[in-house]
C-alpha cells in the first residue's frame, strides 16, 4: 500500500512538472531556446491567482485570470525579448532568459513583499478517501484531473483544428510551414500564450496546495523543467509528459529511500545524467 501511495504522490508531483514543462517544450520546439524565464509565469500565476481569489472568493475566476494574464505576458516576452535575438547563438537567448528570470523574481519580491501571500478562503482543503486507506487533499486530486483534462483538450485542439495543425507543422519544419503561408509570429504567439497559461495554471494549483505564493516559488521549476524537457527528448510533447511523470515518481521514491545520500535535486539530475548517457537524445527523440 505504501508503494501505491508513493506512486500516487509521484504522479501528483509529476502532473505539476508536466504542466510547467509543456510550455517549455512548445517554446523549445518552435524556437530552439531554453526559456528559463518560463518559471516566472508559474510564479505570476500564483500571485494573480491569490489576489483574484481573495478579492472575488472564486477559485475558478482566479484560475481564468491567472491563465489570461500569464498568457498575454508570454506573448509580450516572445515579441519584445526573444524575437529580436532569435538568430543569435543559443547561449544569447539563454542568458537573456536567465537575466529576465532573476529580474522577475526580484520584482515579485519588491512588489509583493518577501514573505509571500496566502489565501483568505480555504479552497479544496478537504480530504478525499480512496481505495480504503489512501487519503488525498482535494487540491491534489484537482491537480491530477485538471492537468489530464487540459492536456487532453490541448492534444485534441492540436490535431482537430486548423491552427493546431499549423502549429504542429511549424514546429516540425518552420521554413516549409512558412512557405505554406503560416505566420511564424502568429504560431509563436499561440505557443507562448498556451505555454505560459499552462504554467500559470500550475502556479495557481501549487499555491492552493501549499496555501502560499512566494517570490522564489519558480526557482526550482526554472531548472527542473529544463531537465524534464531534455529527458523527454527536447521538443517532444509526448516525451515531456512521460518524463515529467517518471521524474515525479523517481523523486517520490528517491526522497524516501535515497534521501540520506542525495537531495531531491541531485536525485533528479543523477537520473537525468544516467538516462542521457544511455540515450543521448533523451527518452523520446524527435523524429
Amino acid at each position: 500500500m505504501l508503494y501505491v501511495e508513493l506512486i500516487a504522490q509521484g504522479l501528483i508531483q509529476g502532473s505539476i512538472y508536466a504542466l510547467i514543462a509543456l510550455g517549455l517544450t512548445l517554446v523549445y520546439g518552435l524556437l530552439r531556446i531554453l526559456h528559463v524565464a518560463h518559471a516566472a509565469f508559474f510564479t505570476l500565476g500564483g500571485y494573480v491567482g491569490v489576489m483574484v481569489a481573495n478579492q472575488t472568493g472564486s477559485l475558478a475566476a482566479a484560475i481564468v485570470a491567472a491563465m489570461i494574464v500569464a498568457g498575454i505576458g508570454g506573448i509580450l516576452v516572445f515579441r519584445l525579448c526573444y524575437q529580436p535575438i532569435l538568430h543569435q547563438p543559443p547561449f544569447v537567448p539563454l542568458i537573456a532568459s536567465i537575466g529576465l528570470y532573476i529580474a522577475a523574481e526580484e520584482l515579485f519580491r519588491i512588489v509583493f513583499g518577501p514573505s509571500g501571500l496566502t489565501y483568505k478562503y480555504a479552497f479544496l482543503q478537504g480530504q478525499v478517501i480512496a481505495f480504503g486507506s489512501l487519503r488525498f487533499k482535494e487540491a491534489e486530486i484537482a491537480v491530477m484531473l485538471g492537468s489530464a483534462a487540459i492536456i487532453g483538450v490541448l492534444s485534441l485542439l492540436q490535431t482537430r483544428t486548423r491552427i493546431g495543425v499549423a502549429c504542429q507543422a511549424t514546429v516540425s519544419d518552420p521554413q516549409m510551414a512558412e512557405s505554406f503561408g503560416i505566420s511564424l509570429r502568429k504560431v509563436g504567439d499561440i505557443n507562448f500564450f498556451v505555454g505560459s497559461a499552462l504554467a500559470a495554471f500550475a502556479g495557481v494549483m501549487v499555491s492552493v496546495l501549499n496555501n502560499m505564493v512566494e517570490p522564489t516559488m519558480g526557482s526550482v521549476p526554472s531548472y527542473k523543467a529544463l531537465a524534464i524537457i531534455v529527458l523527454g527528448g527536447l521538443g517532444s510533447v509526448r516525451g515531456t509528459l512521460v518524463a515529467a511523470l517518471v521524474l515525479g515518481v523517481v523523486e517520490s521514491f528517491g526522497t524516501i529511500y535515497l534521501g540520506h545520500f542525495l537531495d531531491r535535486n541531485a536525485i533528479a539530475f543523477a537520473f537525468l545524467i544516467l538516462v542521457l548517457m544511455w540515450r543521448p537524445q533523451g527518452l523520446f527523440a524527435r523524429s
Binding site: 523549445y28 541531485a266 533528479a268 548517457m277 533523451g282
Partner: peptide, 21 residues
Amino acid sequence: RVRADFLAITTMGVGFLFVGI
C-alpha cells in the same frame, strides 16, 4: 556523448550532483 543543449543540461546536472553529494 551529448551535445549543445543536452550538454548544457547535463553539466547543470553535474553541478547539482556535486552539491548534493
